[in-house]
Design a binder for these strands. Sequence first.
DNA 1: GACGATTTAGGACAAATGTCCTATTCATTG
DNA 2: CAATGAATAGGACATTTGTCCTAAATCGTC
Lengths: 198, 198
Amino acid sequence: MKEVTTRDQIVAVADQMFYQQGYENTSFADIANAIGISRGNFYYHFKTKDDILEAVIDRRLQDRKDMVAQWDADEESPEIRICKFIDILIVNGEKIKKFGCPIGTLSSELAKLNHPNQDGANALFGLFQAWLRCQFVALGREDDADYLAAHLLARSQGVAMLANAFQDDEFIRREVEQMHGWVAAQAALPGRGATGNC
Amino acid sequence: MKEVTTRDQIVAVADQMFYQQGYENTSFADIANAIGISRGNFYYHFKTKDDILEAVIDRRLQDRKDMVAQWDADEESPEIRICKFIDILIVNGEKIKKFGCPIGTLSSELAKLNHPNQDGANALFGLFQAWLRCQFVALGREDDADYLAAHLLARSQGVAMLANAFQDDEFIRREVEQMHGWVAAQAALPGRGATGNC
DNA sequence: GACGATTTAGGACAAATGTCCTATTCATTG
DNA sequence: CAATGAATAGGACATTTGTCCTAAATCGTC
């Protein structure tokens, strides 16, 4: 029975609003109103807006760590695990169509703001990059695991971006299908295919 | 001997600043200071900030139209033309590393702002989509030309996004190489390969 | 029930923003 | 030169922003 603290509420709502409206376009007042607390109370929990962003990024990092940990625990083949990553595009398809990828759009926004927390946002990319890398190593592709991970990350980002711009479900489905095929092809290439974890 | 009007200066500087700092994060004062005109003078040329954005989008549209028109005029094969599109990633590599893709990041920002000019920004995507489509048709791939165009657009966007996040030149080069190979493979597939324009 | 610490409400504050107005300067034309 | 319209400067204006302060309320503990 975990109690929901005001701080948690703030971070949760900020997470959502930063995603849907952007970081800069979300004000203290927006978040306070959404929760139903006073603007002043805010300052007790977070001294600056940047502090909130940091907490939001930590939250997202934890979320994603939990997600890949769950995938790892599922004891499937690395190929299937990679496909679970790809399938995020379909599972979260509606939100992606409306708001893009939460990781990519945040990274892009902070880059333009030249924001001190850029590195934090990019750590989200790094998390998936490292995890995907492990999966490709497990597929026996240790030589270019880094590149394959980045490649898949980039393709996912591109699909999210165009899905957002064009509002196109069919395009997402088709790209996901293609990427599944690509993963299978990568898996078939070398002889190895070990299933051990990183 | 084209005289450079104040209006042109405003649009040119706004174009650059919207790209480098984002639309919302660029103020009237920023643009005015960069040019050296008073903030008040601004209102004479543009009634609202949205009007400036519209002019910037028109400018970008014209720029890109001129670019593809030049490519079309070069009388090369569609395969080479498509590669010229891909090579934007290298030609503009430095800026892309710093600020991402000007089209993708604008589209993404306006989507989050739910801005009335979203359609304008997406027209930039549409321009390239249509042009790429023509090239794939010329390659004899009329059946899936739409999809191939969107696919390549998405891949480029993904590369730009990751290049921006990771500041990685080598990744750009490798992806561009891969895409060149992909285009060649697409060209080799069917027998046709007409070279006529759309 | 009383006390101390935690949490909250409400508002103050300066700075910045988009918008808008007016007076002045500049350039063109008769 | 005179006069008309275009272009510019400077600033007013209300609003919103992030930040910060203080007093009130709430809670746990003795």
